[in-house]
Deep mutational scan, measured.
Amino acid sequence: MSRVPSPPPPAEMSSGPVAESWCYTQIKVVKFSYMWTINNFSFCREEMGEVIKSSTFSSGANDKLKWCLRVNPKGLDEESKDYLSLYLLLVSCPKSEVRAKFKFSILNAKGEETKAMESQRAYRFVQGKDWGFKKFIRRDFLLDEANGLLPDDKLTLFCEVSVVQDSVNISGQNTMNMVKVPECRLADELGGLWENSRFTDCCLCVAGQEFQAHKAILAARSPVFSAMFEHEMEESKKNRVEINDVEPEVFKEMMCFIYTGKAPNLDKMADDLLAAADKYALERLKVMCEDALCSNLSVENAAEILILADLHSADQLKTQAVDFINYHASDVLETSGWKSMVVSHPHLVAEAYRSLASAQCPFLGPPRKRLKQS
């Protein structure tokens, strides 16, 4: 649940008159999402009104509101027999009622949201009550392989729920002597030191190019640089560091992050930047690179990204790559990247197969709970 924001200063709310007192009302909304995959969808019983329910879910471990999704594969009634019906059901509720908006969509073979439908307002739910769409999607369109909505005969539904909580009022009075504290510009100011090479005390040599930097900042941000300058190493004695395995453009992006906490060109060089972040123990930059690479996972590059993640101990990226390969196994196994990995990294192939087997055979063990970014 997000923290209630402070109200904007009255002088910034309007260029008009300023009242002596004010009130700011925040209506709290808890948002969460749920993904439900139905394997072997074409084998569902086709009687009209037949119901399939998901397991229950909530916004978190401490949330007492429990929900589930309900599907009628062949419609709810005679009117909707040519459609799939989809509903959000409130299973248990400690209150007399709650209000919530919802959005349903289908994830296609690429994991993209399609055929989205959402409620136009927050509906009133009581325990045992459901709301949804009797005519969510035509069955003939859903079952047509050309539309790519049932890869490997799996129907994957994605649901986003927004639950309306209580409202909170914050009130106060205006004073004539309003003090406005300026925003912190530390990142910009440190970035200026790097860009202008002011007050530098060490030189970093990268592929024949020299960059002036500040030992204190490098040591504070990177345990690797800290070790170089702290001990009686040649880098500490000469205040000069030779860097041979990072390209200059990648190095500059890494230094921008060290000084400012930002990497504006990360998406263009996420793979190389991940390697640099791993070498210099820049954990936050490493996770930022993992996130960017996750966003660009595809059938063509899944094997290469899995190898990269394994090489640099990028655990979150590795998990996402394995899950992606499992979901698109029939396509990924035909790529040149996968065939190369079979020869060069057989242990990763074995890991992917083990994960695929456990996903398809849940009876082999208890269900695993899916539970950071600093």
Rank of each mutant, 00 (worst) to 15 (best):
F211I: 01
S58K: 13
A213D: 00
V4S: 11
D267N: 07
P367S: 11
Y34H: 02
W338V: 00
A216P: 06
S59F: 08
C294H: 14
K115A: 04
D77I: 09
G16F: 15
A146F: 08
P9G: 04
Q127V: 09
D140Y: 07
I52M: 02
K215Q: 09
R138F: 12
L273G: 03
S295V: 15
L297W: 03
S21C: 04
R99N: 15
W131H: 00
M228N: 15
C294R: 12
S236M: 07
E113F: 09
A357G: 11
P17M: 04
K115R: 11
R368H: 11
K279Q: 01
N265G: 04
E145Y: 04
K115H: 13
P9S: 04
H231E: 15
S222M: 15
I106T: 12
R185F: 06
N239L: 04
H347Y: 05
A216V: 02
N39R: 03
S197H: 13
F211T: 05
N72G: 11
M48Q: 02
K369W: 03
S226I: 14
M254H: 00
L306M: 03
H312D: 10
K28C: 08
P17V: 07
W194Y: 07
D188R: 03
M233C: 15
E189A: 01
S171Q: 03
T25V: 05
S222L: 13
E97A: 15
G132N: 00
I258K: 00
R370D: 05
V179W: 04
G148T: 08
L150S: 08
K135A: 10
V4I: 06
T114Y: 04
K95T: 06
R368W: 10
V332S: 01
L84F: 04
P151Q: 05
E247M: 07
G208Y: 14
G75T: 04
R240I: 12
F136R: 02
T260S: 08
R370Y: 07
A116L: 12
N108G: 13
Q212L: 11
S236Q: 01
E183I: 03
N239G: 10
N62Q: 08
S162I: 08
W131S: 00
C202F: 08
S6I: 09
Q209G: 14
V29F: 02
N62Y: 03
P366Y: 13
G337C: 08
R3Y: 13
V179T: 07
H347D: 08
D267W: 06
V4P: 04
I170F: 01
S80Q: 12
S2Q: 07
Q320C: 04
E113T: 06
P7N: 12
E247R: 02
C361R: 12
K134N: 13
M1A: 00
A220K: 07
K372V: 06
F158L: 11
D271A: 07
